[in-house]
């Protein structure tokens, strides 16, 4: 069996030491740190990304909360404004209605006064004319000079009884 032939034992040991030492030093100093750094970097990158994702998620939740609260606020503000507007509109409408009522009352009063005045004037006119007619008739029937005052009184009393 060639394995038991000691002729090349020293050579094999020598080359084993040479090659294995080279391998050990090379891997120890160059290859393994490189692979290790890659793995470290990847792990760090993954954990960093996870942390960033977590942070962003928290931020997003924050923003969502803000949006929600702002929405609630806006809604209440809107209802407030609506209430105020409808209130003020109602007030205004009420005022204007009152004003209109007042104006109408005034106009009605004016009209009533005018009508009264017209009526008075007309009645006076009629009275005067009755007086005139009475005077004329009397003067035609009897030559009697009666003063206007007396006629007026007479007509009035007659009118009163007629009325």
């Amino acid at each position: 069996m060639p394995q038991l032939n000691p002729e090349f034992f020293v050579s094999q040991l020598f080359w084993l030491v040479v090659t294995f030492s080279f391998l050990l030093v090379f891997l120890w100093r160059i290859s393994l740190p490189r692979i290790g750094s890659v793995l470290d970097k990847r792990e760090r990158k993954i954990s960093e990304d996870l942390a960033t994702a977590k942070k962003l998620q928290a931020e997003a939740e924050n923003i969502q909360e803000q949006i929600d609260s702002q929405l609630i606020q806006a809604r209440s503000q809107a209802t407030n404004i609506l209430k105020q507007t409808s209130n003020s509109l109602q007030n205004k409408a009420g005022e204007e209605l009152e004003n209109l009522d007042k104006e109408l009352d005034l106009k009605i009063n004016d009209s009533a006064k005018t009508i009264e005045k017209n009526k008075k004037e007309s009645l006076e006119n009629i009275e005067n004319q009755i007086n005139d007619i009475t005077k004329l008739t009397l003067s035609k029937i009897i030559k009697l000079n009666i003063s206007d005052e007396e006629i007026k009184k007479a007509v009035k009393s007659a009118g009163r009884s007629v009325n």
């Binding site: 094999q12 090659t19 891997l27």
Partner: peptide
């Protein structure tokens, strides 16, 4: 005797393969 033998060649190839691959 530290002659370079076929065994030594195998060792060198082995080390070369490992170091180059890694």
């Amino acid at each position: 005797d530290i002659s370079f033998t076929n065994s030594s060649l195998s060792m060198v190839i082995t080390v070369a393969v490992i170091t180059l691959f890694l």
